[in-house]
């Protein structure tokens, strides 16, 4: 699954908490169970808080990766409506 292309991508660079998670959560709500969301972000705190909040909401975090000096990419699978 982690190697597959995500079903949806969002770019939340420039946003800070809590809007980072608000945007990610809204994107997730609009997806089907089993689909994977890719999140591109540049707010360091969100690279820790979004995975934790997603797990708290019952979703599966597949990947948290720092891709360059400023950006992170997260992959989250929707497991719960």
């Amino acid at each position: 699954m982690a190697g597959d292309a995500p079903d949806r991508q969002i770019n939340i660079k420039g946003l800070v908490c809590p809007y980072t998670f608000v945007k990610a959560k809204l994107a997730m709500e609009a997806m089907e169970i089993g689909q994977v969301l890719e999140i591109l972000l540049d707010y360091e705190e969100a690279s820790r808080s979004i995975p934790k909040s997603m797990e708290d909401h019952g979703q599966k975090v597949l990947k948290v990766e720092k891709v360059n000096d400023t950006d992170w990419v997260l992959l989250v699978r929707k497991d719960k409506d």
Partner: peptide
């Protein structure tokens, strides 16, 4: 579809699993 203002205004609701965007 929420406007940016609405996202900010209702963010503390949207964060709640029992509320959310829906």
């Amino acid at each position: 579809d929420f406007t940016d203002d609405q996202l900010m205004r209702y963010s503390r609701h949207i964060l709640l699993p029992e509320v959310g965007g829906k």
